[in-house]
Write a protein that binds this DNA or RNA. Structure first.
Lengths: 145, 145
DNA sequence: TTTATTTCCTATTATTCTAGTAGGATTATT
DNA sequence: AATAATCCTACTAGAATAATAGGAAATAAA
């Protein structure tokens, strides 16, 4: 039960765009270098974020991407669901996919509890939280030196 | 991020063995029929449970399987980890697989929270809980009719 | 002792998913 | 005109999933 690179990289992209946001455009090449991810693969992932309106793009030379809204408005859950699809641990819990045995399936109740716990975490952490953590870390680092 | 059939079927096997435990041997064929799973595939899954000592086997005619210990002693987490491997949402969280960037990885903290939440659920539900739910359901059903 | 029944063991396979790679079209700046 | 960037689509190697298949070994019943 793993989160794929697609979802993980998408979170890293949003984090990178939020952390390095100065109003200027940020190039895929730079994100790829900073996050140590294949440039061409990142292109495909950021295309998903772009189509969903999570980022804005500027084409041509000196173009790039900017985060569309405030980092507070993006939860990890939103980004994972967009790129990975449903975060339900079993297909039975997804919309429109009810099996006939669901009414008498004790294990399904466990999966539902698991699903709730997963959502509880990913829907309560935002990109802003990650940025704050990084800045806190950097701050204390400066303080130490 | 899905639990595979391997893990789900293993839980179903343990549940079935606990629910139908009379001291007699239970055949794979019967479990497969009750749980609506391929018999040959179940054989492979129950072999894992057998090797781990979660079930006891009796070979030959009139043979079969019995749950080894009390249903209270088997958590869903134990069964899933045995059949699926680690339930960590990312490889970085698995033992002996630390990447170099872990110290300065904000997203890793989210995955750790997620991992904790997952473990919290699967380690606190036992096979006995599932059996109790089924018996409760059957009881109330009898009461209704 | 033979037959039937059951677990045990290993190999094979079709399908899907993952994680990219590749190549070029389009758009905008310099 | 040259360069730099996004955009778009196709392709692919490898791994994982979810079985299927065939028979060997063990045991009980006839």
């Amino acid at each position: 039960m793993k989160i794929s690179t697609k979802g993980r990289y998408a979170v890293k992209v949003m984090f990178d765009l939020a952390l390095n946001n100065t109003g200027e455009c940020i190039k895929v090449k730079d994100i790829a270098a900073r996050q140590n991810i294949s440039e061409k693969y990142l292109e495909q992932i950021i295309a998903i974020l772009n189509k969903a309106g999570y980022v804005n793009s500027v084409r041509g030379a000196q173009g790039g991407y900017r985060i569309a809204r405030a980092p507070e408005e993006y939860t990890i859950g939103m980004i994972l669901r967009l790129t990975e699809g449903s975060m339900a641990p079993v297909a039975c819990l997804e919309e429109g996919a009810e099996c006939e045995q669901c009414d008498t399936c004790e294990t399904l109740e466990v999966w539902r509890d698991l699903y709730d716990a997963i959502n509880q975490v990913i829907d309560h952490v935002t990109i802003a939280d990650l940025v704050a953590k990084r800045q806190q870390r950097e701050g204390s680092l400066d303080y130490c030196i």
